[in-house]
Simulated scan of single mutants.
Amino acid sequence: MQDFCVADPASPAKVNGLACKDPKSVSAEDFYFSGLHLAGNTSNTFGSKFTAVNVAEVPGLNTLGISLARLEYTPWGINPPHTHPRATEILSP
């Protein structure tokens, strides 16, 4: 049993998520993301910008089933059709 499993993207082993980093090499940066405050470029066909934060950006989220996102719209912008296999999406204004 373990409290956390920080992702080790360099490991060839694949488990429920990514293989765990050696706990001795885990740092605070493995649990931090600083980009959600930055405005995205919405000058595209959909008039929207999606910024994802998942295990690729925050290795400490590995195996927790958690991700975050920032979605920005221009007036009349849309969220393009998409799917979430094995996941749920909840949007809040």
Score class of each variant (00 low, 15 high):
residue 66 I to H: 05
residue 65 G to M: 11
residue 10 A to H: 12
residue 35 G to T: 02
residue 62 N to S: 03
residue 45 T to Q: 13
residue 32 Y to S: 08
residue 40 G to R: 00
residue 5 C to W: 01
residue 61 L to T: 00
residue 47 G to Q: 01
residue 38 L to I: 08
residue 30 D to P: 06
residue 9 P to F: 04
residue 7 A to H: 01
residue 46 F to R: 05
residue 45 T to S: 12
residue 28 A to R: 06
residue 84 H to P: 08
residue 11 S to E: 09
residue 9 P to K: 03
residue 60 G to F: 00
residue 59 P to T: 03
residue 90 I to Y: 15
residue 53 V to G: 01
residue 88 T to N: 10
residue 57 E to A: 10
residue 44 N to A: 04
residue 52 A to N: 15
residue 6 V to L: 02
residue 80 P to H: 09
residue 63 T to W: 12
residue 90 I to F: 13
residue 87 A to P: 05
residue 26 V to A: 06
residue 91 L to Q: 08
residue 30 D to Y: 03
residue 29 E to Q: 13
residue 86 R to S: 12
residue 72 E to Y: 07
residue 32 Y to R: 06
residue 42 T to K: 08
residue 10 A to C: 12
residue 90 I to G: 03
residue 12 P to M: 07
residue 54 N to A: 09
residue 5 C to K: 00
residue 85 P to H: 05
residue 79 N to G: 12
residue 51 T to E: 15
residue 30 D to L: 12
residue 40 G to K: 03
residue 24 K to N: 14
residue 8 D to Y: 07
residue 27 S to C: 10
residue 8 D to P: 01
residue 4 F to P: 02
residue 53 V to Q: 05
residue 3 D to F: 14
residue 35 G to D: 07
residue 70 R to P: 00
residue 45 T to W: 13
residue 20 C to D: 05
residue 72 E to F: 05
residue 16 N to L: 14
residue 76 W to V: 14
residue 22 D to H: 06
residue 15 V to K: 11
residue 59 P to I: 07
residue 1 M to T: 09
residue 15 V to C: 10
residue 58 V to R: 00
residue 61 L to N: 00
residue 11 S to D: 10
residue 8 D to V: 02
residue 72 E to A: 01
residue 46 F to M: 07
residue 1 M to L: 14
residue 80 P to D: 04
residue 74 T to H: 07
residue 2 Q to G: 11
residue 69 A to W: 09
residue 69 A to C: 01
residue 20 C to K: 06
residue 87 A to D: 14
residue 39 A to S: 14
residue 49 K to S: 06
residue 54 N to I: 02
residue 28 A to K: 15
residue 9 P to W: 01
residue 78 I to P: 08
residue 49 K to D: 09
residue 83 T to V: 15
residue 48 S to Q: 03
residue 66 I to G: 10
residue 1 M to R: 13
residue 20 C to M: 06
